[in-house]
Design a protein around this nucleic acid. Structure first.
Length: 455
RNA sequence: GUGGUUGUAGCUCAGCUGGUUAGAGCGCUGGUUUGUGGCACCAGAGGUCGCCGGUUCGAACCCGGUCUUCCACCCCA
């Protein structure tokens, strides 16, 4: 019998007490913001039927879905011919469930299933892990948390505004200042493809043009050529590439550039209105950048699209989202427009760690440790413990009867600031000794005074 | 999915062109201090060198496979 070392599955992590304290700080900030904006919490199962999940994230996304093997005799429906004809004929027979890939699709499923109970517009938030069978690397995990806020049942651009506001609030609370909320609109991208004479190919156009920042215009042109875009259409894109900074000037330029495309003009209008609403609300455009080449892969987006990137850090986008006009349509509920976005807690964590933004003192720790020498002290300590906790003081009694030194070391390691010492003298005089581990000062107090001091 | 990279004590890492009992710092345990933590000093425990196989008289070191880590691409939170 050999002992095997336990390991974690690729791309997954444990979170220890320190990490949890920090994660909770982020999570609480987000949750509090969602509630402030009137969103209500929802949870859905970790697994969904594969039929719910497939086809919503593009081919690439389908490949990244974790599929669950059917329970029991999962091979019972598989024929020999299936095996020879490949994975696509075997898969549906051995797996009918998968782990959720994001929170938006399960939400759409929920909305459709509960359409009669839900009051629209429906604002919900959801904070749960999602799973992707991706290759892990910096800021990319196979299990990670998303914090989604979505509104369905209205196409008011107020929702888009609120997304901007929530992002600004959360980032402000977290102490992140140097970031940009990139915003664009799928309709503008559609218009773009129409104007350059490649109607209907905005998907491909996006994938290529999205890399502009990363690989440069030359390489993007190469990629477009490879994808069989005509030299003329590529040429027509160059004004877009050369657009100068400034949301207003970009919008002005695009109004004329896209004037022959109705859908393109609609996109511009929507974007302008969102920025207008921002002004009316009393906020400014700081950190909000209209980015004509922002694309985003998720196929279901139809209107506004968002992505948030923290500047000067090695972590990718920490938040993203957009409007989807017909996600519920595939589940049989037409005409319900939705818009939402998601914070990636794990990436926010990585960013904050890289920037050293975690507050030192947010570890949830015990305030008082009660130490003692013998059974009498233990019993006496138990009573003191009860009173401390009733007064709301986070406290613990050392569980084992052992040397006082060891009990002190425990307090020291756990950074417990106060130690109560209970020995013969204390019990005889009906007092306790309180030592402040930071200053090293010790004093004799009644239990009442101890509680008063600790509260 | 493609290409590369990493794995030695709890942690961070040494370990020469393959050669006896694999090292350090930190941490841990005990002691100096049987009613007092941090500091100091002393002592000690702890390793199938990721795993499997191969080459060799001999492998932590060379070769193959596999898992893992990190990175780039793809894509994405």
């Amino acid at each position: 019998m050999s002992i095997q070392k336990p390991t974690l599955p690729k791309g997954t992590r444990d979170f220890g007490p320190v990490q949890m304290a920090r994660r909770n700080f982020i999570l609480e900030t987000i949750k509090e913001t969602f509630k402030l904006f009137g969103f209500q919490q929802l949870e859905t199962p970790a697994m969904e039927n594969l039929s719910t999940l497939t086809g919503k994230y593009g081919d690439e996304g389908d490949q990244l879905l974790f599929k669950l093997l059917n329970s029991g005799d999962f091979l019972k429906n598989v024929e020999v011919e299936d095996l020879t004809s490949g994975i696509s004929s075997v898969l549906p027979k051995v797996s009918e469930k998968g782990l959720r890939y994001d929170l938006t699709v399960p939400f759409a499923r929920y909305v459709v299933m509960n359409r009669n109970e839900i009051t629209f517009p429906f604002k919900r938030f959801q904070i749960q892990p999602v799973w992707r069978a991706d290759r892990p690397q910096k800021g990319r995990y196979r299990e990670f948390y998303q914090c989604d806020a979505d509104v369905v049942g209205t196409d008011s651009l107020l929702c888009e505004l609120e997304i901007l506001l929530m992002i600004k609030r959360v980032f402000g609370k977290l102490g992140l200042a140097d970031y940009s909320i990139k915003i664009n609109n799928r309709k503008i991208l559609t218009g773009l493809s129409e104007v350059i004479g490649e109607k209907g190919r905005e998907g491909e156009l996006c994938v290529a043009i999205d890399k502009l920042d990363k690989i440069g215009w030359e390489k993007v042109q190469e990629e477009l050529t490879q994808r069989n875009f005509s030299p003329e259409s590529i040429k027509q894109l160059s004004p877009i590439v050369e657009l100068k900074e400034g949301n207003q000037s970009k919008l002005e330029f695009l109004k004329t550039y896209l004037s022959s495309s109705d859908i393109g003009k609609k996109g511009i209008e929507e974007l302008e209105e969102v920025l207008e609403l921002l002004k009316t609300y009393g906020e400014n455009e700081a950190n909000v950048d209209f980015d004509v080449v922002l694309a985003r892969g998720l196929t279901y987006y139809t209107g506004a699209i968002f992505e948030v990137k923290v500047n000067h850090v090695s972590v990718g986008s920490v938040s993203g989202g957009g409007r989807y006009d017909d996600l519920t349509g595939v589940f049989g509920l037409e005409g319900v427009s939705g818009v939402g976005f998601s914070f990636g807690v794990d990436r926010l964590y990585d960013v904050m760690e890289e920037l050293g933004l975690f507050p030192e003192e947010n570890m949830e720790k015990t305030k008082v440790l009660i130490t003692y020498f013998d059974k009498n002290g233990f019993d006496y300590g138990l009573k003191v413990l009860n009173q401390l906790r009733k007064a709301g003081v986070s406290s613990e009694l050392y569980p084992d009867e052992t040397k006082i030194k060891k009990q002190f070391t425990y307090a020291d390691k756990k950074q417990i600031p106060y130690v109560v010492i209970l020995g013969e003298t204390e019990m005889q005089t009906n007092t306790i000794s309180l030592k402040d581990l930071h200053s090293g000062l010790q004093e004799s107090l009644s239990v009442q005074d101890l509680i008063k001091k600790m509260e």
